[in-house]
């Protein structure tokens, strides 16, 4: 039986092989920037926020 062995060259487009869609790049960098913000805002050692403190706040009301 003839096996259909793969020709790797035919798997990937040539002319668009180095393209990165702009929308996707915005997403990629946007998430990294947001991640830095979130890390700073929600790490007790940096911002002082903690889930326990947030709870104490919530029951004072």
């Amino acid at each position: 039986m003839a096996e259909d062995l793969d020709n790797i060259a035919s798997f990937e487009a040539k002319e668009t092989s180095r393209k990165l869609p702009v929308g996707w790049l915005i997403l990629f960098w946007g998430l990294i920037i947001w991640g830095i913000y979130y890390f700073v805002a929600y790490t007790p050692a940096i911002s002082g926020w903690s889930q326990e403190k947030a709870y104490e706040e919530s029951i004072k009301k």
Binding site: D6, S10, F11, E12, A13, K14, T16, S17, R18, K19, L20, P21, W24, F28
Partner: peptide, 17 residues
């Protein structure tokens, strides 16, 4: 996807990243 459609993957670079 490329095998069954005969269409090559759009971007090698996007795959790597």
């Amino acid at each position: 996807l490329p095998k069954s459609t005969g269409l090559p993957i759009f971007s090698h670079r996007l795959s790597i990243i």
